[in-house]
């Protein structure tokens, strides 16, 4: 009976499609939720790094260095198995995973946002102030919209990385694509087929997002070329 089996047999993959796609959906949800957390935290930390108060600046610096330096795998294990046990909080795996992924990405995004904000010409801020806008109004209406255009490509790359990183969340039991794949591969004893298919789904997600960013980037740069403000000076 063994010899009658075909070398590549994807029938068990097709029949498990529902579970795999559900896992894929959860992976995308985790990546998206984590990026939203990372954008919020990253923006706060970026603004803190640009603060004139030394203590705030130092805290923000340590924050970015710490989360950029620690591997996701180590951090997620620390949060889920270490911290949870030591402090006695029972965090659901999905929450632990999303929070960890969000924290890690916020360290990278804080740096991205900071470079985006500092890329804006000081003259723009001064012009805004000269017009009588408050510091906050200048940040909100002049600096951030322009910085946004600069940070779109690196933000997109970060999202792609987050999608790939969700696979690691399987380690704490988040039932995302990789977790489901591992279990199904063991159950059907078809590791090659299942892992190949999982790889294909990640590839599809990553290529789709990258293509989307490329299109968005093109649109934004076309828009900026038409803006007279940038051609002046």
């Amino acid at each position: 009976m063994v010899s009658a089996e075909p070398f590549f047999d994807f029938t068990s993959v097709w029949s498990s499609m529902g579970i795999l796609l559900k896992g894929f959906g959860l992976a995308m949800f985790c990546a998206t939720a984590a990026i939203i957390i990372a954008i919020i935290l990253g923006l706060i930390v970026a603004l803190m790094r640009l603060s004139s108060v030394k203590a705030i600046k130092t805290f923000a610096f340590i924050y970015t260095q710490l989360f950029r330096g620690i591997p996701l795998y180590v951090l997620v294990i620390w949060v889920y198995f270490g911290l949870a046990i030591a402090v006695g909080i029972n965090m659901p795996a999905i929450m632990a995973g999303v929070v960890t992924l969000g924290l890690l990405n916020s360290g990278y995004l804080a740096e991205t946002f900071r470079s985006g904000i500092t890329a804006i010409d000081r003259g723009q801020v001064e012009a805004g102030m000269a017009l009588g806008l408050s510091k906050r109004e200048v940040t909100r209406t002049i600096v951030l919209p322009q910085a946004f255009r600069i940070i779109i490509p690196p933000l997109g790359n970060q999202y792609v990385d987050a999608i790939k990183d969700t696979a690691i969340l399987s380690i704490v039991g988040v039932p995302e694509l990789m977790r489901e794949t591992q279990q199904l591969a063991d159950l059907h004893y078809r590791p090659f087929e299942f892992y190949t298919f999982a790889g294909f789904l990640y590839l599809l997600a990553v290529l789709t997002v990258s293509r989307g960013i490329a299109i968005l980037e093109k649109k934004l740069s076309a828009h900026s070329a038409q803006t007279p403000v940038n051609t002046a000076s």
Partner: peptide, 15 residues
């Protein structure tokens, strides 16, 4: 570049 290292690791080792 698009396939997560974690998936690649399982693909190589088990697959």
């Amino acid at each position: 570049r698009s396939i997560p290292l974690f998936v690649l690791l399982f693909w190589v080792y088990y697959g």
